[in-house]
Nucleic acid binder design. Sequence first.
DNA 1: TTAGTTAGTTATTGATTACTTACTAGGGGA
DNA 2: TCCCCTAGTAAGTAATCAATAACTAACTAA
Lengths: 199, 199
Amino acid sequence: MRKSADLRKAEIVSTVLEMADQIGPDRVTTNAVAKQIGLTQAALFRHFPSKAELWGAVAEHVTGTLAAAWEAALEGVSDPLERVRALVAAQLGVIAHTPAIPMLLFSRELTTENEVLRGAFRERLSVFHETLEADIAAAQAQGRITVDLTPRDAAYLLSSLVQGAAIRWALGPRTTSMEETGLALLDVQLRLLECRKDG
Amino acid sequence: MRKSADLRKAEIVSTVLEMADQIGPDRVTTNAVAKQIGLTQAALFRHFPSKAELWGAVAEHVTGTLAAAWEAALEGVSDPLERVRALVAAQLGVIAHTPAIPMLLFSRELTTENEVLRGAFRERLSVFHETLEADIAAAQAQGRITVDLTPRDAAYLLSSLVQGAAIRWALGPRTTSMEETGLALLDVQLRLLECRKDG
DNA sequence: TTAGTTAGTTATTGATTACTTACTAGGGGA
DNA sequence: TCCCCTAGTAAGTAATCAATAACTAACTAA
């Protein structure tokens, strides 16, 4: 079936992401992608001049999805503690919906192969970290989070929580919901971070 | 230079680990390894019947190193809080010394390709988690760690801390010492976990 | 109706992969 | 000294990879 170039490009990108999760990013060959979609291998190169540019489009899609999820999560939320929770929850949600992301971070296409993509990903993750840090600092200023630690360290602990949950889920049997277990652990960590009222 | 088979095998395994870190696990071809050592590619197959068995030896070496590090760290340490710290510190140390480990967890050789290796790695990591969990429970019984969370969740937080530190270091510029920053963050998390004396 | 555009195919390329076969050299033990 | 085991080499193999070339069918606008 003949599709428009835009639709086909989007289909290729999403197929690459699916297959990257299923068989690993480096196993995603042009032939495998084409077969999965129902095209010939050569047809891919009508939409993307090289495989590297195909991976570039995939990376752009992923970083765009992340940014959109953060923006949506923070939409109209002003309470710093709620913003922290919303950010982490959004991150967990995107990873759960796009399980190839953790593997992608370590794939050769985004690290060894393409230094630009590696930089783009790192920059995006540092934006996440800085946003987290700022809201934590605000919560500390309100006396809602303990000042026993720096906002930077608290942000590291929270982003580590996401990464740990993602790793366990990606490597595990994937029976449980990553989002649920991640959010449950987030609640535990936030309770530790909150200033205790008891004596 | 002609070496004994045992020495050569060990040299091949350690070379694979080094190159896996430098260029990524899937980029480690038999040709690249042979060239790095100064042998012909065919010589590798005199020591390992297939590349899969070579990766098996690498995985065995890594899991063995981890187990040895844990044992050494816990040697003669009975205080549960100290054991927790020693375990996490040992884990950070091994990863810092063998930086290919995080990438290895997501490589096709240990996930898609070889289901046995994947299982071996997961089992080893769950042993780490259970040891951590037991010592945390002991520390809680002593009233040294808050009972606000389950030992399981606390262990998840600590292993996530290691994984997060490893990821940031592996993907980052690697200017700082992973072990130092990891240990510093460990202190922060342990302080949050410890029962507070103030009111 | 027709001419141009574009998504698609078939067939093939050179490079690289893991792996094999047949041969060689070198060192230690008798 | 001689011999034999073994680490190593030279020269290939089939399979698979990304990419290219030449061609075709389908859609669109004039």
